[in-house]
């Protein structure tokens, strides 16, 4: 017990908490676009993480092979994922809008294999590292904080803010909220549903690209990297209440703290186990998500 309290008040625990907070920024950024698409088009893009993976590859090749500055490469990565988002909708989801939700989910699961396979064919299975590091912020002798993660945190918070204002203030934002409630009557409001879905998918894709740029700074890219953060991204969206941006944002921090705290007391894997178990448990208590408004 003494050992436990010692651990709890140790400086490293504080560092763990802060790192959890910063990991939360990464996760929040990851789940943002998925959540938007989820909330609006009411379709789970199981292949969302694979779109991010292709964004990471774009950035990697443009920067490492073509020598393009990282910032511009990141911009191109975002462009690529935006187009991918459009394609996912136009080529697959478009034909399944009236199908059972589970069929939509499975079709994007097919895309997951397709994108993984394509990446493997085109890029092989090596792990590739961008080799760019933003360094760390040295807070004290014992506490180092990665600049990349701080940037992630800021960008995630910023994107949530921008998205929130966009959704609550603009005509398009109102239409995006409305279409998720009643698709059929949207033409009566003068809304072209097809265009609105495409727009949403494009924004979802662009947010995937933003996440890709920040992940590329922290992790090696390989064709199967999506499997390591895809599932957790879905769970964050569900826990926050599908389509609820702010809820998803908060859920990301719950997950990240659970993972890092679990990792602090045992292995990182136990951190994940803890987070997933808590997720399952919250689903039982609040199936509409932790932050859903009571209807």
């Amino acid at each position: 017990m003494a050992e436990f309290t010692d651990a709890l008040f140790s400086i490293f625990f504080v560092e763990t908490l802060i790192n959890g907070l910063l990991l939360g920024g990464v996760l929040a950024l990851l789940s943002l676009g998925l959540n938007l698409v989820f909330g609006v088009v009411d379709v789970v893009w199981i292949c969302y993480a694979e779109i991010i993976m292709l964004g990471m590859y774009t950035i990697y090749f443009l920067h490492v092979d073509a020598g393009i500055p990282v910032i511009i490469a990141a911009g191109c990565g975002i462009a690529v994922t935006t187009i991918l988002g459009l394609l996912v909708h136009r080529i697959v989801i478009h034909y399944l809008l009236d199908a059972a939700p589970i069929n939509q989910l499975l079709a994007t699961g097919g895309l997951l294999f397709f994108l993984q396979g394509s990446a493997m064919v085109a890029f092989g299975i090596e792990f590739r590292n961008l080799g760019v590091s933003l360094g760390s912020l040295i807070v004290s002798e014992d506490i180092y904080l990665s600049w990349t993660r701080i940037l992630c945190f800021v960008l995630a918070a910023g994107s949530v803010g921008v998205l929130y204002v966009f959704l609550s203030r603009s005509y398009l934002g109102a239409a995006i909220r409305a279409i998720s409630q009643d698709r059929e009557i949207m033409p009566l409001m003068g809304v072209d549903t097809k265009k609105l879905y495409l727009l949403t998918s494009a924004i979802g894709g662009a947010l995937a690209g933003l996440a890709a740029a920040l992940l590329a700074l922290q992790y090696d890219v390989h064709p199967f990297i999506g499997l390591s953060f895809g599932p957790i991204t879905f769970m964050i969206c569900v826990m926050g209440g599908l389509g609820n941006m702010v809820g998803g944002f908060l859920a990301a921090f719950i997950f990240s703290e659970l993972i890092t705290i679990g990792g602090y007391f045992a292995d990182l894997e136990w951190g994940y186990v803890l987070a997933f178990v808590v997720f399952i448990a919250t689903m039982f208590v609040r199936p509409e998500g932790l932050f859903a408004r009571k209807s």
Binding site: Y171, A174, R177, Q181, G190
Partner: peptide, 23 residues
């Protein structure tokens, strides 16, 4: 004005009205 009203139930009254002005 559609059958059964079809309001956007989880949006405010003013947001609903705003949707009428979307074009």
């Amino acid at each position: 004005v559609p059958e059964n009203r079809r309001l956007f139930a989880r949006m405010t009254v003013e947001d609903n009205l705003r949707m009428g002005c979307f074009s």
